[in-house]
Design a protein around this nucleic acid. Sequence first.
DNA 1: CTTCTCACG
DNA 2: ACGTACGTGAGAAGG
Length: 896
Amino acid sequence: MSKKILLIDGNSLAFRAFYAMYQQLDRMVTPEGLHTNALVAFNNFIESIVLPMQPDMALVAWDARSGKETFRGDLYPEYKSGRDKTPAEFKEQFPYLHEMVEAHGLHNYEQVGLEADDIIGTLSRVGQAAGDQVIIITGDADLTQLVTDDITVKLTKKGVTQVEVYTPDFIMEQYGITPAQIIDKKALTGDTSDNYPGVTKIGEKTALKLLKQYHDLENLYAHVDEMKPSKMKEHLIEDKDIAFRAQKLATIITDAKLPIGLTDIEYHGPKEKGLVSLFEKLHFKQALNKLRANSLFDDNGEAAEEAETKQGNFTEVKELTADVLKQLVKEKSLAFHIDTTGPNYHTADMFAFALGNDKVGYYGSRDFTLFDNEDLRQIIESEDIALQLFNAKEHWVLCHRLGLNLAGADFDFLLVAYLLDTVGNDNVLSTLAGRFGRYLANDEEIYGKGAKFAIPEDDKVLIDHIGHKAQTIFDLRDQAFADLDEHEQGHLYNDIELPLSFVLAKMEAQGFTVKEDRLAKMGQEMDEQIANLKTEIYQMAGEEFNINSTKQLGTLLFDKMGLPVIKKTKTGYSTAVEVLEKLAPQAPIVEHILAYRQLAKLKSTYVDGLLAVVDPADHKVHTRFLQTLTQTGRLSSVDPNLQNIPMRTEAGRKIRHAFVPAHEGWEIFGADYSQIELRVLASITGDPAMEHAFVEDEDIHAETARKVFGLPDDAPVDAEQRRTAKAVNFGIVYGISDYGLSKNLNIPRKDAKNFIETYFKEFPRIHQWMGQIKEQAHKDGYVETIEHRRRYLPDINAKNFNTRSFAERTAMNSPIQGSAADIIKIAMIKVSRAIEEKGMQANMLVQVHDELVFECPKEELEELRETVTKVMDSAVKLAIPLKVESHAGPTWYEAK
DNA sequence: CTTCTCACG
DNA sequence: ACGTACGTGAGAAGG
C-alpha cells in the first residue's frame, strides 16, 4: 500500500522560524537566558503543519554541523561563503531543535559530506521508487526541482505556518517550465544566497525565456552559435563554463549512499514525556497547558498516566443542596464562584455557581432559588466567613442583583494576579491559574464562544467545571498571598485595591442618570447638520463617496485633487486631523470634512452609542470600571466608557448636558486634582525648583516657560511661550524624547532638543531621577509606584533600539501615572467612608483618572464639597501639596 | 478581526 | 542610523 513520507528541510525551516519571530527575539527568553523564538515558531510549525498530516514516515534532514566539505565546496571554493555569521541567539537554540524533533516523534538525520537537500533528494527518490507519496517541506525554493507526480514540495510562504504547494502543474503554471528545468534556470542565473554566479546579466525573466525556447542548457549551448548577435549571446559564450559549474552546484543529489532507509524513519506519533520535559525546560507554558488539556482525553498508556495526575488536582464535585449548605455555613473560609453568559455582569444571565473548600469538598449548582436559602445568604453576607473569589467586584454586583450584600471577601485571585504582574493579564481564570502552574479547562472549551456559546446540559461537565474553578481559587490562595508579601504588596491589596473594588461595585450599580430625550434631540440636530455638510462636500468633490472611508477620502484628496501627502499609514494615505489641518488652507473642502468628522463621531459614539446602553428600567448607564487592565494602575471604563465623554470642544461638551442627577433637587458635583502628575513627579524627585512652584501655588506651565526661555522670575509669559512649556511638561511626564516633542510642537528637532536640555539644567533632580529610574528598570526588570504597584518591563534590555527606548520611556512614565492612580484610589476609599460615616446621601458616580463626579441633594452640596476637597487633599502625605478644584451644577456640563 | 480615527486623562 | 511621545475604548471600514 502507498505510504505517506514526510521529508523536512530542518535548516531552512529553522532559519525561517528564527527570522519569522525576530521581532520577538528579546522578549522570548527563558529565565536561564536561552532565546526561544525559533523554537516557538518551529514548534508551531510541527503542530500546525506536520501533525495534521499523519505521515507514515517522517524525517527532518539537517546540514552536517561539522564543516561544509561537500562536493560543492570542492567544485567552487566560494560556495555558500560570504554569508552573515549565524547569530549566537540562533545557534544556542539548535540542540533543542533536535530534541524537539525527537519529542514530536520525528527523526533527525544529518551526514557529513551531504547537505540537507541531498538527503531529502535521495530519500524522495527511494520513496517514489517504492510507490509511496512523498511530501517535502522546506523554505528553500531549490528543492522544487525534485517535484514529480509523486513528490510534492511545500514551500513556506510567510513565516513557517503558511505553505505554497508545488506540483508539476503548479510549476508549469507559475514559470512555464518543468521541475527538471529549474536546475538549468539556476545554472543561468546563479544563486546569490549560496554565493555562486551564473551567466552575466541573466536573471529569472531571461532564463525562463531561454529555457522555453531551447528547453535545456545542453541544447541551448548546442545552438548558441545560431543566435542573433547580442550582448546576451556574448555573455552566454563567455560564461559557458560558469553556467555548467552552476548547473552542477544547483543539482540536488538523488543517489547518495545513505546508511538509513525508509523503515528507519517510521512515525508513531509524539512522545508525551519527551514533550513535557522539553516544554518545561523551555518554559513553554501554553504548549504545556495544551498538552495537559489534550491528555485528559487521551487513552494511550503514557498519556493516560499523565492525565491521572493532572485530574488528581481536582476532587469530585457534588450537587449543592440545602443539607450541604447547613454544613458549609459552619466553615470559616469558602471559595465562591458564579458563572454568567457574558462579560457584562450588570445584564448577563447567571447560570451556575459553586462553593467549597479543601475540607468539605466542592459543590456546584444551577439552581439560583438556593439564594433564598438562609444558610447561603449567611455565607455570602457574613463578615465571619472568608470568601475566596475571582473578581470580587463582579461578584458583589451579581449578589446585589440577587438581593444580597457580599461581605467577608478575603482573596480576589484576579486582583492579586494583576498586582503581581500586569503583563499578559487576560482576566481569564484558567490562564491566570496557568501562571501559577495550575491547569484548568478554559471557559471556551466548555462553553464555546460567540454564536457557539452554550451552557452544557450534562451536569458532569457544567458542575464539574464550575466546581473546579472554586477549587482552583481556593488552592491558589496561599501561594498568591505569599507572592504578594514577597512583593511588599500586602498594603496595596488589603487597604487599597480590595476595598476599592467594592467602592467601584457600588458606583457601577448606582449608575449615572441620562436624559434620553435631551440626547435624542441633540442627535436630531446633529443629523441635520451632518446632512447639510454631506451635500456640500459631495458638491465640492463633484461626486458622492463615503466620507467615513479613509480609503475613499484618500483617493479623493490625494489622487483626484492632487493635494500633497503629509503622512502615510501602513495601508495608504493618512487622513488624520493633523494632516487635514495642514491641508485646510489649500482646499476649502477639507474644513467641511473636518466638521463632518467631528459631528459624525459625536453622533455615532456619544449620542447613538450612549442611548444604546441606557438601561430602560432606570434610565441610567451602568459602566464597568476595569480594575485589572491597565499597565499603570489606572482604571478603565467600558460599556459605556464614561472616561472619554467629550470636553475639549464646545460641540462635544454639550453631550454632558444629558448627564443629570437621579433625583429632583439634586446636583452634580465634580472635584479634580490640579496637575497631579507633575506634583507627583516633583514629590518623587524632590526637585527644589518645581517644589517651590507648587508650594507657592504658581502657574506651573508659566513657571516652566520662564525657566526654559531664560526669563527673570516675575517676567510675564506670553501665550505661545506657555503653550510650549506646557508641551514640555507633558513630554517630561511621558518620558521625553526630542522627536516626540518636535512632532507635538511642530518645531525642528534641534529646537526640541534645546528645550529639553535647558529643562534638565533648570530642574536637575528630575534629570537625575530619570536616569536613576531607567537604571533601576534595567537592573530589576520592573518599576514601582509610591504604593508598590509594580510594572514589569520585559523589553527594557532589548537589543532593538525602538523596543528598548519604548520600555525606557515607560519606566519613566509608569511610576508617575501609577502613583497618581494610587492617590486617587486612596481618596475614593476615604471619600466613600466619609460619606457613609456622616450619613450623607451623596453618591460617587464616576472616576476620570484625576477627577471624581458625584450627585447629591442641593442642601448637601457644601458639606460634600468640603468633605471631598479635604479628603482628596490629604489622601496621601507627599512633600508637595495636592490641590483640588471643584464645580457643581444641574448637569455634568457645569460640574467641570 | 484588524486598521484607522478620535474621544478622554 | 535608528524613528517613538504615556495610558485608555468605541465606531466604521474593509478584507
